[in-house]
Amino acid sequence: MKLRSHHVVTFSLAAALALAACSKNEEAPPPSQPAASAPAAAPVDAATAGTITGTVKLDGVAPKPVRFKTDSDPYCSKVHASDPLMSEEVVVDKNNDLANVVVYIKTGLENRTFPTPSDTVQLDQTGCHYRPHVIALMVNQPLAIVNSDQTTHNIHPTPANNRDWNKSQAPGADKITDSFAREEIAIPVKCNVHSWMKSYIAVLKTPYFFVTKDDGTFEIKNLLPGDYTIAAWQEKYGSTEQKVTVGPKEAKKVDFVFKAS
């Protein structure tokens, strides 16, 4: 075959340009460092510490939970034969209180650092879904992932600002322990074996966060008096925030409302 040389050159250049443009930067940015002026971790004075409590609600009709098709794995199908597995994207109670919302102090603590907790946060794979559906932990805090199912899972966090990884976990396998080095709200976690399995991990620089309970309530304790931005993140509806001032020993109430879309 006689392919003319100018055809080859034109095509090669075009293909090379297209492929070069496709490359993804696999390197995550460097870990965020505390501000140069930030003092070392200092204990909070319990005598003056305040508290923020509140409720997160949904304004509007919550989407109807979707029944997942689990028949691609006989084990999952059997586990949910009489108790279908439903989506947890939006979980509300009868009063439209939203569960699984991460509420956290977004700004106001930049000049402080906090020790990393040594206690481990656990994410379980049970009944072919993640328990809990949303977790929050601090930067570098240990995360343990266990598999309570009699089927193999793979755990695949897909962060935007942290190192991603993909590990498998057979039934009865040892727990997987890892941590995340950078703040990120929130990292989606999926199982590529079971397409319906999804979870979120919020990684924060301060210990001032809470994942709302089934009744939509949260409580952020032991907070220094000061001016803050408090934010709430929900996997479907995104983020919302408010300014709040907490005085010494003050118990502040802050409520959030997400609009159903």
Binding site: S72, N154, K167, S168, N192, H194
Partner: peptide, 28 residues
């Protein structure tokens, strides 16, 4: 089926040539 990473290892699949063919593993 978003199953490209259902098998995290290569060239073997879960350390074997015949893993359980469930979920995304079936496709990958």
């Amino acid at each position: 089926n978003d199953a490209g990473l259902a098998v995290p290892d290569w060239p073997t699949s879960y350390g074997t040539f015949f893993p359980p063919m469930v979920g995304g593993i079936f496709y990958e």
